[in-house]
């Protein structure tokens, strides 16, 4: 898929019909691939509404009478709250883009990533992508009671690898995580740092066309952090487009060539990392 996109971008390079060319400034010493290429992700007036359960306020606690009157009046369950997390976001990402997403807690960053990955259905609007974007992270598929060994295999399969690929990557994952003989023990016996390292090692073992990274860098000790930053850089270079959500603005400024600032589910600013981050720090 990646090769195909590359080819396409060469063919379509002559077409001048590319918006917001002026926004592109490359602060990095090594600029990523030219952004005047093919779009890989198009987000068109996206709204995401998802449901949260169990958020009852005090006065309407679940007693039977309340539940019954609610049923009779045909009202929805109060335990179920709808959260309008993303409210009309529109942007186009191009091949070679590394887009940082910044914003306060609850501004809809993770939700936006999940929508781009095709994991959360849009309430209205749409997301178009080239190939299958993937979130970096397999935590949800792993089981604490199982050994590291079993979890590596399980995690790789969960990401859609074939048995041959799993065999090929297994040693690399163990090496990279640096957990050594602990791989034979259940993950519940690991220290939190070791667990995080193994999880990162598993999830970064696969290459992706469009990659979405959600705060993955904040794991492990200093040494592993360095290693993982290196790995992210590699992945970024092999992937077509990268989205990065992180609270560490330094990381975003170093790795991204474009930053989107989300505020309360809307785009507040979109453009050059230095300018957006400066404005974000002020506001």
């Amino acid at each position: 898929m990646a090769e195909l996109t590359e080819e396409l971008s060469q063919v379509k390079a002559e077409e001048p019909n590319v918006p917001n060319k002026d926004v592109r400034v490359h602060p990095n010493p090594e600029p990523p691939a030219p952004t005047t290429g093919t779009p890989t992700v198009i987000v068109d007036d996206l709204h995401i509404v998802y449901r949260v359960y169990g958020a009852t306020s005090d006065h309407e606690k679940g007693n039977a009478v309340h539940a019954l009157t609610r049923l009779l009046k045909r009202q929805g369950r109060p335990q179920m709250k709808e959260v309008h997390a993303v409210k009309g976001v529109t942007f186009v990402a191009y091949h070679g883009d590394a887009i940082g997403i910044v914003g306060r807690n609850g501004s809809g960053k993770s939700t936006l990533l999940r929508a781009i990955a095709g994991l959360l259905p849009p309430h209205s609007g749409s997301v178009y992508t080239d190939g299958q974007p993937s979130l970096l992270g397999v935590n949800a598929a792993l089981m604490r009671e199982l050994t590291g060994e079993r979890n590596i295999v399980l995690g790789c399969y969960a990401m859609g690898m074939t048995p041959a690929q799993v065999k090929e990557k297994y040693d690399e994952i163990v090496d990279f995580s640096g957990i050594g003989e602990f791989v034979q023990l259940p993950m519940s016996t690991y220290s939190s740092g070791m667990g995080a390292r193994l999880r990162f090692a598993i999830s970064s073992a696969k290459t992706h066309d469009v990659l979405l990274i959600d705060e993955a860098l904040a794991t492990g000790d200093r040494e592993f952090r360095k290693k993982s930053e290196q790995r992210i850089k590699q992945i970024r270079e092999s992937a077509g487009t990268v989205f990065l959500v992180a609270h560490d603005l330094r990381v975003i400024e170093e790795t991204c060539n474009r930053v989107i600032w989300l505020h309360k589910g809307k785009i507040k600013m979109d453009g050059d990392p230095k300018e957006v981050i400066a404005a974000y720090n002020k506001g």
Binding site: N17, P39, D44, I116, S126, Y128, D130
Partner: peptide, 18 residues
């Protein structure tokens, strides 16, 4: 004056994420 995003997506062979 430019094409709507859905057309742009179609032109480049992009598919709906979900």
């Amino acid at each position: 004056g430019q094409e709507p995003l859905s057309k742009l997506a179609k032109r480049y062979g992009l598919r709906r994420a979900i």
